[in-house]
């Protein structure tokens, strides 16, 4: 998260709403460890990353939805488990669990 703080500061000083997605758990093979973080502002601008590019697009949609609905933070899972709402998979075959929340704290 350290590497995206400058972008977050800049957006917040411009009065933009920001959501942050953090990897909290990886099962099997995964490109980024827990703690990898990505920030999205209300205009859809992005800083940082949470995978090798496999799920970033879906994370942006989810982050924008949370900002738009002014919703509380929630867990989002990407991977092979078939009861998940998201069709996006990881090419490496792993499962990635993210926590996405608005930066309102």
């Amino acid at each position: 998260m350290r590497e995206i703080l400058d972008d977050i500061d800049r957006w917040r000083s411009d009065g933009k709403k920001v959501a942050v997605a953090r990897v909290v758990k990886i099962e099997g093979s995964g490109p980024r460890d827990p703690g990898a973080a990505m920030a999205v502002n209300e205009d859809g601008e992005v800083a940082g990353s949470v995978s090798g590019g496999c799920v970033e697009g879906a994370v942006v949609s989810e982050a924008l939805a949370i900002i738009g609905e002014n919703a509380p933070g929630r867990m989002v899972t990407f991977g092979y488990s078939d009861d998940e709402a998201f069709a996006v998979g990881l090419t490496c075959g792993g499962i990635i669990r993210l926590y996405i929340e608005q930066l309102d704290w």
Binding site: V24, P72, G73, R74, M75, Y99, E101, W105
Partner: peptide, 12 residues
């Protein structure tokens, strides 16, 4: 530390 699931989600 962030509550990510359960009562109080989002608390820090």
């Amino acid at each position: 530390a962030t509550i990510i699931e359960g009562p109080g989600v989002g608390a820090k």
